[in-house]
């Protein structure tokens, strides 16, 4: 089934996303994996900073903020909106 993979940076607040691809490389990739940005994991988009960037995400019951430079390289499928 063709999926509509979106970068985390484009998802609206409140959406839940199942990650499928992380195109960040190097040390930051390791850091993201450590934090739970692992393919297969579900991430919730929380809120944007008052100035629009970074965006806070909920992953593994913790809140992690990422700048657009990074969150635009993490992709996943939207699996639900505000409820779930």
């Amino acid at each position: 089934m063709p999926t509509t993979s979106v970068p985390l940076s484009n998802a609206k607040s409140g959406t839940h996303i199942r990650l499928n691809r992380i195109e960040v490389q190097g040390v930051l990739r390791r850091r993201l994996l450590d934090l739970g940005f692992v393919p297969g994991n579900v991430v919730e988009v929380l809120q944007k900073s008052p100035l629009g960037d970074p965006i806070a995400f909920r992953v593994n019951n913790t809140t992690i903020a990422l700048r657009k430079e990074e969150s635009s390289l993490i992709f996943g499928d939207i699996i639900g909106g505000e409820t779930s």
Partner: peptide
């Protein structure tokens, strides 16, 4: 250019 970073917002 600014390097990447992740920021945790602890409870």
């Amino acid at each position: 250019v600014p390097t990447h970073y992740t920021l945790e917002l602890p409870p």
